[in-house]
Design a protein around this nucleic acid. Structure first.
Lengths: 216, 216
DNA sequence: CCACAATACATAGCATCGCTATGCTTTCAG
DNA sequence: CTGAAAGCATAGCGATGCTATGTATTGTGG
């Protein structure tokens, strides 16, 4: 017995905020609602304030990441798939560096941790397959190895996306993942080939697709 | 033919800012100068604005990190030293998590990159010693391996200090560094022992030393 | 079908933010 | 000793996030 929220407004604000982030414009309350026809109160009715908007933005980032990882085709070579997942993770971070930063800055509180869990589960599943194929030792803990792969991916993404390392430093992913998976039991040469195959889907280091518009 | 700046004011503001960061109080211009006797203009005469203060704060962070790494004693086992440097790096990040975040957020512009270069050079030097001792292969590029070690350290620090991983996830440093150094040519068992020895100086996962004072 | 009530939404104002213009005070140089 | 340049405090400006208040709208119970 009351007015209902229009979901279109929520997604509109969310998309606009993501776009402002991409364009490197400061995401401010007034600038966000300017030009949308809605007023500042909309942010409070739909997100409860700017904090809620940032939280929803983090959620959106994980959703996009999950979509990116879902696009990775699984092959008969689970080690290749692991490297491909890592490459997709890094590609996502480099395509939306500011969104990636928001995801991992200032707390992790999400409304729905399902997307983040999904991400880790994909790695765990690929590791399970690698164990079943005899590539990794039986005593390997899939969750631990997945966490370590994630640590490498995040370290690389963080240092390259908004850090001091140049884009070509992404090539470090191959030897690092090869070292990690070799230590898990895989045969070195074969491991390297698998990782290189999976990592090969990495987009080349081009100029970022950001438009860098300081003027709205 | 003019008045000279008092360096004490600069360091006072810097230390106070670092303390506010540690206490998790928002570092705002007015709150920073409140109680110091100086006015808001001091921040502009000494730092040129809040941006300059953040830059100086990043510099301070690297200085503290360099001091922490300088306290690591070099032994006859260069692989142990590498792990010890990694442990010191992580210990510093966990003791000052907010300062660490400032160091790696929003650009890297420092006034003096010497401290940051110092950090990497320490790793490179230890790797050179490992090569001289026959632990690592001759064709290993020290700078590349140092960068990879740094990536692991930063990934771990970032995910644990202000991220989703619990403190005990720091233990992942041992297998990851062991995998990396083994791939560089070190003998696996000996490598693991060296890394564990160096990593052993890691302070145990206790409650952070932060005081969490929201009320000034 | 309809009136009530609960909710969305716009407007206006508040405290605070970083910053700067202004004037006074200090202090080094000639 | 004097003048000018720099430190420094005060006050105010635009912009920020947020909230109080009033209006409009719409789903629902009788």
């Amino acid at each position: 017995m009351a007015r209902t929220k229009d979901p279109a407004v929520r997604t509109l604000l969310l998309n606009r905020a993501a776009q402002m982030l991409r364009m490197r414009q400061p995401v401010t309350l007034r600038a966000l609602v300017a030009g949308t026809g809605v007023s500042t109160m909309a942010v409070y009715t739909y997100f409860g304030g700017m904090d809620g908007l940032w939280k929803a933005l983090r959620q959106e980032g994980f959703t996009r990441l999950a979509a990116k990882l879902a696009a990775v085709t699984t092959s008969a070579d689970p080690v290749r798939d692991l490297a491909a997942l890592g490459a997709a993770y890094l590609a996502n971070a480099l395509e939306n560096p500011d969104l990636y930063r928001v995801m991992f800055d200032e707390g992790f509180d999400l409304e729905d941790t399902g997307a983040a869990d999904e991400t880790l589960h994909r790695l765990v599943h690929a590791i399970d397959r690698a164990k079943a194929n005899g590539r990794f030792r039986d005593e390997i803990d899939p969750l631990e190895l997945a966490t370590q792969s994630w640590t490498i991916g995040h370290g690389l993404a963080s240092l390259v996306a908004t850090g001091p390392l140049p884009h070509q430093a992404l090539a470090h992913g191959v030897p690092m993942l090869t070292a990690l998976f070799t230590s898990a039991g895989d045969e070195p040469d074969r491991c390297r080939q698998s990782v290189e195959r999976g990592w090969g889907l990495m987009p080349p280091a081009g100029p970022g697709s950001r438009e860098r518009s300081d003027r709205p």
